Every structure is written in structure tokens, then in C-alpha cells.
Simulated assay, not measured.
Amino acid sequence: MPSEMKGQYSQFGSAISEMATESLKGWRNSIGEAAITIIDQILDGKNEEERKTFIEGQFKSTYQNRPYYYPENNAECYEGVFQSRIVSETFSTHFEVIKNIPDYNRSAALPKAALVLSILAIDRAFVLSQNGISSGDFSSDQIAKDSSPMIHQLFEKKKDGKDRVTAQLWSRIIAAAKAHVKPQTSNITSSNPIVRREEDA
């Protein structure tokens, strides 16, 4: 927050709240649009029956173990979970959005919310593609909102207190996503606190 605004939230609160809402909406929609673009690329060239078979194959198991979480849909390779092309390229949108924010202004927390949002966006993109429905506003998608708590459980601690996704696995997931981020071309930095907090909202 700019120093001249400190202590004056009552005066600027409404404007700040509106800006925060718009920033969050833009962040969510950018991830939703990325999922649709990537899935369209993957399905390009497939006929209607092939598209249907491919999409149905992605939902043949529960949200806990979707085939598309894994490279080549190989669920036997747990070390590769959340590192498939679909997940990595969609998740990379988050890092693309925050790449101009200096490290010292970023949350040190793991970007769990961004990965959850990526998974929800991919599920939605598959459904939209299967049903031939236009994308609309991902930020206000009610099914995604309702499904969010279930997806968040994938990244919570197990009953024994251990992390479901280890620090080492997180490192691989993040590295796979960042491999798709375009190099920074400007020294201009952003001080947007909304994006920073949303890394683990």
C-alpha cells in the first residue's frame, strides 16, 4: 500500500476493495483461459469421437487421481504428479502473472491456491470442450467454487501429520510450471498486493 494511504483505509477502502476484486477476477480468468487454450491445442486434429474418448478418459477416476495430473497420463509415476503438460502450462499462468513482482514482495507460502485453481480450470475446460459451450467468466463459475474444497484436500496434511505433497515434489511441480514462463523482458515491477496474497489464498 502506498505510504500516503496508510491510516486512511476508511477514505480509500471502497476503491481498494473494488481494485482487489478486479485483480482477483483477472487472475482467475487468466488461468481459466489458459486451460481452455491448452486443451484446444491438445485436442486439435482429433475427430469428434477421438475428442470424446480422450476427455472421458480424463474423468475415469475421482478428482484425487485424474489421469491428466501425470505426464503421458501415467498414474503409475507418482513422482510426476501435477507435472503433465496440461497442468504445468495452466499453472505457469500464475507465475507469468507474478514474474515482475520482486521476490521480497512475494509470499513465502506455497502457491497451493494457484494450483487448485489450475486443476479446477482444467476440469471446467474439458467439460466445456465436451459440451461445446463457450467459456464465459471462470471467476464466477459456481461448479468450480463448489469443487474447490475437495481439490484443496489434495494439498492438505494427512492424518499422520505428514504433507500429502512433499517439499521435494512441490519443487518439481513449480519447476515444471516455471519452464513455460516467458523470460522477463522489462525491469518494471509490480507492487500489486492482491496477486501477492493470492499465492496461497
Rank of each mutant, 00 (worst) to 15 (best):
N74V: 03
E4D: 15
L169S: 04
N105E: 13
F95I: 12
H94V: 08
L24H: 06
T37P: 03
M1L: 15
G7R: 14
T93S: 06
A201C: 04
D160Y: 06
A113D: 03
I55D: 06
A34V: 02
F126V: 07
T62K: 13
G45F: 09
Q153G: 07
A20L: 07
Q130T: 07
L154G: 01
K158H: 05
F12H: 12
E50T: 10
S118L: 08
D141C: 13
R85S: 00
E89L: 01
V127T: 14
D200Q: 11
G13F: 11
A114K: 01
S10G: 14
S14W: 13
V87A: 01
R106A: 04
G26Y: 05
S148W: 04
L110V: 10
P193T: 12
K178F: 08
P102N: 12
I16C: 11
S61M: 11
E48A: 15
A114W: 02
P111K: 02
T21V: 09
F82E: 00
S23P: 02
K157V: 09
N73V: 07
G32V: 03
E156N: 10
V195M: 12
Y104S: 07
S30G: 05
V127P: 05
S135D: 12
S17D: 14
R51Y: 01
T90A: 00
I122F: 00
S17C: 14
S88A: 15
P149A: 03
V87T: 04
S129P: 03
G7T: 14
K112N: 07
A144H: 06
P102G: 12
S61F: 11
Q41V: 05
I98M: 11
N187Q: 14
L154R: 00
G45Y: 09
T93G: 05
Q83W: 02
Y78E: 10
A179T: 07
S61A: 13
L169E: 06
E79Q: 04
I36M: 06
R172S: 05
F138A: 05
A176N: 05
E48H: 15
Y69G: 00
L120Y: 02
R164S: 05
A177V: 02
E96P: 06
M5I: 12
S3V: 14
S147M: 11
I39M: 03
D163G: 04
L120I: 08
I38W: 05
I39S: 00
R66T: 00
T93F: 08
T189W: 08
S84L: 03
E56G: 13
I151C: 02
A167F: 05
W27I: 07
N73F: 05
A108G: 13
M150E: 10
